[in-house]
Design a protein around this nucleic acid. Structure first.
Lengths: 184, 184
DNA sequence: GTCTATACGAAGATAGAC
DNA sequence: GTCTATCTTCGTATAGAC
């Protein structure tokens, strides 16, 4: 049910997804919602955000453990491209959707912040372990996440994965240069 | 009224903003909505998106006309930082909000796509005019927009402008290098 | 053009039976 | 735990008077 919520949130946003939508998508029984989610829709949104954050974190960590950062970027690019294509460019990132929930539900936004920070940490550590100075490593980690998220949004608007491809190319070049010790 | 809608959309999203909210914020008379916006909320969202796109386009073009691209980035950074700070990190970008409206209102999403493309064009042209090859210029333009939009989202989640600062630093370094003819 | 009143539907949440 | 029924609120949109 949390997974269904995540799938729907990334296509329709948190505000655009009703409890009924989640029930229908997950096949969960109607009467049991407020047993499992005493906090109502807010709690569901928090848990879906956390779930998505952990998914991205695990995927990123696994890719970084296997390959060098540039190769890991490739697997990330492929994953986001398939998410976009398979949804006809309707799906984005759950953490972004949770952030946009913003003022209405601070706890959901805070869950998104934790997901972003964990994601940034695992990237930063990978860069540091490969010899990039800590401050620079953090900047590149932030840039990576921001650029991917922004590119996914642009891809949804323009209904083509091209923005994500261009952004990924630039990111890979930048990271490859940084790994060789260059400034930019 | 379009301006009020834009202000509210960037804080609460399109779905999270009601017609009543716009009326209250703008002080517009209640009975005249469907005279001016026959297409209802959809039309209002389209016009607000177009308005925001033209605003960003004009600001960017003006900054690029006065200074070199790196200096123009500085003015962009300052503008976004003040938007975030002044709203207590509640406000983001109208075009992003319009994109997230997505499947529900294709015409709104298309207006967002046009805004992104116009923005990208003016950046790309500025880079080309300063000697960066066309393909690379376009990639950097896409990266710039994606990274700024992503950084604004991260800033809202984390309630600090720090992500935007780090991303801006990286972007300025990258563009400065590209202007000197380097690869990354 | 602007007003009030209202129709209509959707969504979150709760109550109480099984 | 799960069901049906219902309460309440809210949002879009329309109708008809001024």
């Amino acid at each position: 049910m949390v997974e269904s919520a995540a799938v729907l949130f990334r296509e329709r946003g948190v505000q655009g997804t009703s409890f009924n939508d989640v029930l229908e998508h997950s096949g969960a029984p109607r009467g049991s919602i407020y047993h499992h989610f005493r906090g109502g829709k807010t709690q569901l949104a928090e848990e879906a955000t956390q779930w998505a954050g952990e998914f991205i974190l695990a995927s990123t960590a696994a890719a970084l453990a296997e390959d060098d950062p540039v190769a890991a970027f490739e697997s990330s690019r492929r994953w986001w491209t398939s998410v976009l294509r398979d949804s006809d460019y309707a799906a984005g990132c759950v953490i972004v959707a949770a952030t946009l929930e913003g003022e209405r539900e601070p706890s959901v936004r805070d869950a998104a912040a934790r997901a972003f920070q964990a994601w940034e940490s695992v990237l930063r550590d990978a860069f540091v372990n490969r010899g990039i100075p800590a401050a620079r490593a953090r900047s590149i980690a932030t840039l990576t996440i921001a650029a991917i998220e922004g590119a996914v949004i642009m891809a949804r608007a323009e209904r083509t994965a091209a923005p994500l491809e261009r952004v990924s190319d630039e990111l890979e070049t930048l990271v490859a240069n940084a790994l060789r010790g260059e400034a930019g």
